[in-house]
Design a protein around this nucleic acid. Structure first.
Lengths: 200, 200, 200, 200
DNA sequence: AATGAATGAGCGTTCATTCAT
DNA sequence: GATGAATGAACGCTCATTCAT
């Protein structure tokens, strides 16, 4: 994948593709449409991406990398289970709101990937979920959390925080900060812990 | 839509379509594939459904009707906010597990509907969500629940319970009953209420 | 591959395809061109043939089958090496002239087949060549023929008789019968045998 | 067509093109493939050859020139019809084996040339065939050869000797010298002449 | 109630080629 | 002497759908 000094063209193509995938879905988006949005010819897209699927994979991998990096940073920044999980939840919600389109694409288009790409993305997703499960497990072991089933709780929490991308409207009543805080709060309460203190 | 004495053929077609839409998505599913699963010719499908989109609408409307009927019944069966919401959550989770495929299709393929059909489905979905929001609002007003933002809480709760369809595996460790109970529990705790008593 | 009572449409398509392949080569022929010759839409071709390659394989296999059947019949009709080989040569030349296009396609487009199809055709071709080699070998053993190298002779003879398809013009000076006879004559003389008697 | 001090790049490109055309055919070979084999970019090929067709024409013309020169030399080196034809056959076979790829390309890709180029190549081919026909005619007139039809014989002989390129394997049982001799032998015998003496 | 045959539109992708640098 | 970027045209093929039977 070639790129100029600023990666301009490839980025412009990808941005348009993200919008298309988000609005209509991967399979309902044609290469001609992506090309038109980037103001180039369909054939020119192939100078930057070897296939439509490559574009999807690039989007999903990029978002997954950002998510994982943020979760790891949040994890390492705190040692108390409550603060740690709250920070991770805030990071998850924040990224899902800031990159709504990529988040929803990552959530719904895994089927569209080729088997090899799918394996790669699923493996990364599993690693990410494990970060959360282990944090919750550790909190239960240290008495900070209480829950009937760690796996169910992990799934329920992640699904809830991911879901923000599907209903949050940036022009809405709540700021991103507030939504993130509310979710940190909901999550901790559902684990029978006192709501966490808000960071400055 | 014609139908024989038992509605057999139409149902067989629709069942196959549901599996296809679930496994690959609406746009990645071809009429030929649906026909093949029903062991008829592509042209014959049109004897029962006037278009591919009609099949999608039928599936989504059917699931939405079932969901709404169950929520109304749960609402009417109880008057205390806690029991009422718990019953509604249990019904929601139960139907989403029992009809995983229809649930996931309803959740992800709204974009694929024509504008008219989409309006119809979105209106029904809004009515359904209102049932939950009003129940939570009422609970807060009567002092049974406590939450920072009713709208956010409603969205977060519904997204969490809907999400069960995406990760619950029937062959897993927990029974459907248990997953429904855990979610009723999580929801009530996140609203600062004592976990509800389990029904017999 | 469906077909009506007379195989009309499929045959019409194939005839046009044969002409295209013959005139321009397989890779220079487009499905649109084949469809236009058959006076149908490009998509309709796929009702009869699942791919362009399938059409090529059908043509080659059909010609190979005809060739083999004729060679076996000629072989069985005679027991003297001279008469036997002469009959086989006449059959080979006759079919190559009567089906010039199919002959030339079979001769030059093997590379265009998929590996699996290619194996199938090559195997059939080898069987056919073996029929000739064994006939010549037997003739040498029985003292009817004399030649420096049976394999080279077989190849040279077959290539010579196949080549008729590339230069024979139906409107030319010689009749098909005469060309076939001349080649039977050439072949036998090149094996140091008396020219064969002509059949009535 | 520019060229450096050694003509290196142009030759390297052409060699790769010959291999591609030989292995897959002209139309199945892309400029990108030719460029990749020469380890340059597709656009760079156009610095040396103005089009894909020019490359094909260059290959065919080069082989035809070599063939013609060799045939003329063989013709002039002998005066007896038998020795003369034998020498011409040996030259033809030798060049077809030594330049298998160019020979096969010349034989099968004439259709791919533009009308103007095709006319040029066909004219040269006709001149070459005339050399053989006149030699055989002269041999018949002088009583050295006997055949039913000079034109048919010429075509059959040339097709047979050209065919060597399609089946001869350099690693095979016979040396190039031997194959050339066998063919000179076959040709003379088929013209009812005593096999020619072998040259030192 | 069902289907074989057909179709127009559109798909993802590749092509030979151009041109400013 | 070489190339990165671009392009218009065309490729083989699949699509949802129609319709006479």
């Amino acid at each position: 994948m070639p790129h100029g000094p600023d990666g301009g063209t490839a980025r412009r193509i990808l941005t348009g593709a993200v919008s298309c995938f988000f609005e209509q879905g991967y399979h309902a988006t044609s290469m001609r449409e992506i090309a038109a949005r980037a103001q180039i010819q369909p054939a020119s897209v192939y100078h930057w991406f070897s296939s439509k699927e490559t574009m999807l994979l690039t989007v999903m991998q990029g978002f997954q990398d950002a998510l994982t990096a943020a979760a790891v940073a949040a994890h390492e920044a705190h040692s108390a289970p409550l603060d740690r999980l709250a920070a991770m939840v805030r990071a998850h919600v924040t990224l899902h709101v800031q990159h709504r389109k990529e988040a929803l694409i990552s959530d719904t288009e895994i089927r569209a990937l080729s088997p090899a790409s799918r394996r790669q993305i699923v493996a990364g997703r599993d690693r990410y979920q494990r970060l959360f499960r282990e944090t919750i497990e550790d909190g239960c072991a240290r008495g900070a959390f209480r829950c009937a089933d760690v796996s169910v709780a992990t799934n329920a929490i992640l699904v809830q925080c991911t879901g923000v991308a599907s209903w949050y409207r940036p022009r809405g009543r709540l700021s991103l900060q507030e939504v993130a805080d509310v979710h940190a709060d909901l999550v901790c309460r559902s684990l029978d812990a006192e709501p966490p203190s808000k960071p400055a």
